[in-house]
Design a protein around this nucleic acid. Sequence first.
DNA 1: CGCCGACTTGAATTCCTTCAAGTACGGTGG
DNA 2: CCACCGTACTTGAAGGAATTCAAGTCGGCG
Lengths: 243, 243
Amino acid sequence: MAADGYDVLGPLIRKLERLAELNDADRRVVAGLPFTMEDVRKHDYLVREGEEAAHCAVLITGYACRHKTTRSGGRQIVSFHMSGDILNLQQVLLPRADHHVQATTDATVAWVPSPALKTMASDRPTIGEALWRDTLIDASIFREWVLNVGRRNSTARVAHMLCEFTTRMEAAGLETPQSFYLPLSQEQIADATGLSAVHVNRTLHALQAQGAIVVQRGQVRVVDPERMRGIAEFDPAYLQAAA
Amino acid sequence: MAADGYDVLGPLIRKLERLAELNDADRRVVAGLPFTMEDVRKHDYLVREGEEAAHCAVLITGYACRHKTTRSGGRQIVSFHMSGDILNLQQVLLPRADHHVQATTDATVAWVPSPALKTMASDRPTIGEALWRDTLIDASIFREWVLNVGRRNSTARVAHMLCEFTTRMEAAGLETPQSFYLPLSQEQIADATGLSAVHVNRTLHALQAQGAIVVQRGQVRVVDPERMRGIAEFDPAYLQAAA
DNA sequence: CGCCGACTTGAATTCCTTCAAGTACGGTGG
DNA sequence: CCACCGTACTTGAAGGAATTCAAGTCGGCG
């Protein structure tokens, strides 16, 4: 609350700018949202399934994921998130969380009261449209994940997931797409692709053998994005250039 | 256009009533939407991937699905739809379809111009909220599908898909949950669960052997919903009681 | 220096796919 | 009314992709 919203909520404002044409008044309203900051550590939970949260978490720095589990202990990551993403936007209108939200790296989060977001969405139609569009793109990404997990073999599946991740990082202005280490462990990749960690390891080495990535000290670096997209059959249209 | 909106768009009105508290004025606006009717046959396409559609399809009778394909020919159904569902709501804000929409039975559809829906959403905040909530529930269902396809074995996976389908039919007021034949072919079940049609056949017979369903003339009938929910680990919370 | 978490590698096993060859049924036309 | 045909379902057998189990290795951190 002490910090200036323009500084701290900058990533959120930039994200909304990619989703709709904000004017100065819109930006002012976003920057004026009430919020409290929290630093979290890698693996910390931000939301737990079944929880009724009165606040939405805006990711400022670091990375996070949403995941669900089966009773038998299977874990499935359903999305990754980065700077500017609202991690539990659905809780503006749906009281109970249907999944967990967890930091995958050390991260900082701005907690915004859900009613403030809801009011903003109806008072400023452009922002409301941006939030609805964000939800629609979210849904589009989930559909692609259903296809990815349901119908692609392990190589294409892992490659596709990595292509999406790098494309979204680029869209969020986080890194140049060339040659950077992904903030993902092999276990996280496994949980996101519905594979076992052991098989992800083998698959990553297969991708390395094809010259698409380099695995070094367990870290993954994409060295030939074009080749990766070929292996993955990756077409970024579903991201709507704004995710 | 000739028909009365209260009659023809009734399923849409009832669906929106489950998503938000409409008043008479809201209902009047929905019933007054411009639309044209179309009868389609089983397997007909309503929207194709990549298309820029200026109209949204509201399903009045029959069933439909949305699906995506890989270049190698794999087909993945990402959702099933029934009376009252808007099949391509995302096209109000996202111009290009990221997937196909196809009738899975003979069906009747009301085509509503997207701008009319968009205007209605901003003019009538309650309706706008209902549509946003519908999108959020849609996304919640997709997340469950990612988990289903990614982490459950064939038996639980098929059972879960059938539980969801029957629960949604019930919510839409289409049938009593007890003992009715599902309007799904084994190939459709396969495409929705990421399995092969052959294995779906075997899985259905396994579910029959456990007394959960009856397969007769290739048609599936759920005879023990409670047992099905147990096998599927089905918890309807993610449907938010309104899908 | 030793421990811990994450990655690596091999071998056996399992679940599901693919291929192939049927069967049953509803619709169509003679 | 019946023969034909196509579609969807059924069943068996062989093969393959990914899992599981088990035993390492590597590097960072206290």
